[in-house]
Design a binder for these strands. Structure first.
Lengths: 210, 210, 210, 210
DNA sequence: CGATAATCGAGACGGTACGTCGAGTCTTTAG
DNA sequence: CTAAAGACTCGACGTACCGTCTCGATTATCG
């Protein structure tokens, strides 16, 4: 399910139309509650009360608590992934990863973490979660590497897939596991000490070209 | 809390002593249930029923479901981290990381994942979790790098801390987020494509020594 | 069961002998607790705690809460039913019924009331209860009537059985149902307005004899 | 509390209204369970299961097991006390007491007995109980005597109050204490041997009028 | 005397019911 | 037909009590 469905194919619907502004109010309430108390302690009654809505108004739009939370994250995630194009690999990485780090550091990151524990037992959630938080970000990184490759900045044998995976891993590991801050210095170190050394041509290699 | 405490400092304890064998039976039951249905769906009734115990017997030892699960993981985690010493950096890394990967791939890994969502709202759990799953493993990796350093296998400016962090991040990211398998080929790739290139002296550097 | 049995027929018993003083301490505790909170809210833990005894010490003597309570009442009941013999029907009735009323007004009466609700579902309790609180008192009343009969104080057709039943009913109805006081004026009224008119020869009948 | 109250003074109530049919279903279930296993062994789970109701549905209406049972008895009691008017004291007594005996012999009588033990520790229950099982019946008896008095059937000095008390006592003593049957012969004996002799004018007194 | 055995207080054990609370559904009035 | 409100069933929660069992310590008899 995930996204609220508006009474299907019916063209001329009868009765009071569904109030679309309630969708966002409910998602906002869900996000706030989840950021405050976590996924487990989030209750539908709490969400309904915060949005001054009835529970039926929630269940009319989403099938379950899980469904509400998935959709909330997905919707809010889709507006926050700019794709930089600075002209250099290092610039693109730096810019994209700081943006992603900032995004993860907000309430959506907290919400995402709250969902991790459910992934193994909720295949639908797993799919939605990966689409939202992994795939999109990975695709952007891939395209950054492709553009760098076209600019001939990469070593031929560079482990591109591994680099993409590592970039995400490093950030999310910090965010969810160690609890260390996802700040600019950290992003810089990931770029300078890991990503660039792993995939970019070294100075001697560049000089060899001349 | 975490580990059940047996009447503390009192030397001569009165009344029937706790049956220590119930501790393990309950932890085993908790681990099984959690691996089957996850953390959220784990109920104390289910754990009690599986261990043929009364719920009071659980609550006498652990304050809550969370406390039980923390302790279960901690106890079971402490017996599974051998520290290899093969004489070479690559050998040590390969051996240790495959062991860690195998450990994470079992039920304890599933249990660990189930806990991640609770970390932000349960500081005590966060501490126990990091001690169990992060610190221990990180310290082993550190010592592996130190020994390699003593054998003069590392480049002087090698980002040792980052390498240690990345090793854990790469494994746990796969385990918990992407769902891709933590198999030997993956560990090999992490070692060959990431860790060794980042910290070890390259062939030319070694030859420079001669 | 009812009364604590002391290891049956064995003549030479080994081991530490049972401490007979605990019996009364436990019965006393049980009576106090029951008078305070009633039968339902009486817990074995509370009785044990009040007597500073272990629960096993109770269960070694009585099979169950019910058994303990039955025996407690029975034991305490047996020492309180004097049989008057004043030489006149009215005197005997007055004396006996005031004694019985006083007895019922104490803690034993409260305890007895607490047991009434269990009678239909506990045949053994019912038997013990009737033996203790009904039969004994009824037999005394019967003998009082017999002696009066021998003294030729009764009308030949006097409903002796009904009188006996009514005497008990009147007292216990007040005690347990209406809550009105079981005081001397009430006993007097029962004797003067009910029992004597029902069974004793009237003045004119007595005069007829002359 | 006793009777479920339906949101008091509010005129326009919001939300789904209480399902009044659940009240009776729950009372019926409570009565059945209590008649089967007694008050003490009655569990809320059993009542809920028998009525296919959630426990919350019970607790929404009644504060406790005791409250439920009180209300159950009260409700069911109010429909079973016809007031006879046969034109003669003996006829009225006979008819009323057989009706009351039959009423007490059913499940409601069993339920009433189950409550007796709680009266001393539950003032509210005591009030409700007396209203239901004592006052109503006593008032009917009083009116029967009044009508007999108006018909000049009573002796002037007849102990009217005592007669009323004895009638109830005799029946309830049998029902709850001795366990003897509350059958028609017994009622007849009570009327003929006790009540009529105590209060009605004797034949000689009647003849004196002529 | 030492060994044996049943007692004692204390409290852990398995089990059952408690009264509360949350999930997801249904039913009312109001718009 | 949708909205808010809240009652509905179901099931897990953490607690309390029952009746049993197990501990160390004590107190008797037996050999």
């Amino acid at each position: 399910m995930a996204t609220p469905v508006y009474s299907g194919t019916r063209t001329a619907q009868r009765g009071r139309p569904r109030d679309a502004s309630r969708d966002d109010a409910l998602r906002q309430a869900a996000l706030e509650v989840m950021a405050e108390v976590g996924y487990r302690a989030l209750t539908m009654d709490a969400v309904a009360a915060r949005a001054r809505a009835g529970k039926a108004t929630i269940y009319r739009r989403w099938e379950s608590k899980l469904d509400l939370v998935i959709d909330t994250c997905t919707q809010l995630a889709h507006r926050n992934l700019p794709e930089p194009d600075t002209g250099s690999l290092e610039g693109d990485l730096r810019e994209f990863l700081s943006g992603f780090a900032a995004f993860l550091s907000g309430p959506i990151g907290k919400a995402a973490q709250a969902l991790v524990g459910e992934l193994p037992h909720e295949p639908e959630l797993a799919t939605a979660f990966r689409d939202t938080f992994l795939t999109t970000q990975r695709d952007v990184l891939r395209r950054i590497l492709e553009r760098a490759d076209e600019r001939d900045e990469l070593r031929p044998e560079a482990p591109r897939g591994m680099a993409v995976e590592l970039a995400g891993a490093a950030l999310i590991y910090r965010l969810m596991l160690t609890g260390d801050p996802l700040d600019v210095p950290f992003v810089d170190r990931v770029v300078e000490q890991v990503l660039v050394p792993l995939v970019a041509k070294g100075p001697q290699e560049v000089s060899e070209l001349t």
